[in-house]
Simulated assay, not measured.
Amino acid sequence: MELAPGVGYAVTTRHGGAGAAPYDTRNLGGAVGDDPETVRRNRELTAREFGLAPERVVYMRQVHSPDIAYVTEPFGAEPPALDGIVTDRAGLGLAVLVADCGPVLLADPVARLVGAAHSGRVGTVAGVVPALVESMAARGGDPARMVALVGPMACGRCYEVPEQMRAEAAAALPELFGTTRQGTPAIDVRTGITAQLARAGVGDIRQDARCTIEDPDFFSYRRDHTTGRFAGYVWLTD
């Protein structure tokens, strides 16, 4: 699928790979306790399904930070600790691993730039998504031309938190304030990310509004605790 002309993207589910419970079957996360060889096979299978060379996919060591890196090749066996990546290299896949946090994919098809960010509660408060927009703009991107996809994540009607946590998050970003279906305190990460993208001037903001807690097609840490990770991918096709 195309996110914009010349830009491919995909969001995986937990189905279609190899692996045993509780990581069944397409776990792409390498730091969740799954067999490393199974993860390697799943990553290779998934890349090939999207027309990407497995050795040309960039994974991060995600730590809920606002840190962004420009990349021209994969990091190798020891990725740095960061939560956003940008490239202008065709055929280089950018991957963000999630299981309730938000995968955010960005593209400026005119400047030939794509970016990916891991934005959960902590990263959203820290501003990883605005930092990604700024990083792309610093390389010639125009937020008004950018297309964003905000992927599947824990929705604001399911992401229950203590009242103090909601208050602290909303003090930093008011749009994070949420309430569950039961009327208890929640955090609405999707609405927070969307507000950040809009304030950054991103011209086209799209939603894959599926909730990872509700939808068994996705891995969900809050639902299952020990579980795998699915991924959002973005790349320049030519």
Rank of each mutant, 00 (worst) to 15 (best):
Q182V: 11
G123P: 00
R210C: 12
R43Y: 05
V147G: 07
I205D: 05
V57H: 08
A69H: 07
T184S: 04
G203A: 06
E37V: 14
L92N: 03
C101V: 14
S119F: 01
D142N: 15
P130R: 07
A20L: 14
A18T: 15
P216D: 09
D224P: 00
R112W: 12
G93D: 03
E78A: 13
P80L: 03
T212H: 04
L236F: 02
V96Y: 04
P103G: 00
E78M: 09
G6Y: 01
Q182R: 14
R89V: 15
V133M: 00
E78Y: 14
G123W: 01
R43M: 04
L113N: 05
E44L: 02
T13Y: 05
A69C: 04
G140P: 00
P36M: 11
T72C: 01
S119M: 08
D83A: 08
D142A: 12
H64L: 15
A81E: 15
G51F: 10
P74M: 13
E168P: 12
N27I: 10
P174N: 08
E49G: 01
G228F: 05
A90F: 08
W235R: 03
T72S: 14
A198F: 02
P103K: 04
N27E: 13
A47T: 06
P103R: 05
P152C: 13
G140F: 06
W235Y: 09
L94V: 10
T194W: 07
A170H: 12
S119G: 05
Q164W: 03
Y70P: 00
P109C: 09
H15R: 11
L52S: 14
G30C: 08
P80N: 00
A148K: 10
F230S: 14
A154S: 13
G140N: 12
V57L: 07
V71D: 05
E49W: 01
F50E: 10
A90Q: 07
P103F: 09
Q196F: 02
A20R: 15
E134G: 14
V104A: 03
T191R: 15
V161C: 03
Q196R: 10
E49C: 08
P130Q: 09
V128H: 05
D83K: 03
A99G: 01
V128G: 08
R166C: 01
E134W: 06
R145L: 15
V32W: 06
E49T: 07
V98L: 02
A4Y: 09
A138H: 11
P74H: 00
Q182K: 12
A117N: 04
R139L: 08
G16K: 04
E175R: 10
A170Y: 10
R223H: 07
L176I: 05
R61E: 14
D208W: 13
D142G: 06
G93N: 00
H118M: 02
T212Q: 06
A18C: 05
G17H: 13
R40F: 11
D217E: 09
P74S: 07
G232I: 09
G84C: 01
E55Q: 10
G151L: 11
R139F: 01
E175S: 08
I68R: 00
S65P: 13
L113Y: 01
G33A: 04
I213P: 12
G156R: 00
A126Q: 07
V147W: 05
A117W: 12
G183E: 11
G232H: 12
G228H: 03
D142T: 10
V202M: 04
F177E: 13
V57K: 01
D142M: 10
D34P: 01
E37W: 08
G17P: 13
G8N: 12
E78P: 04
P109H: 12
I193R: 12
G29V: 11
Y9M: 10
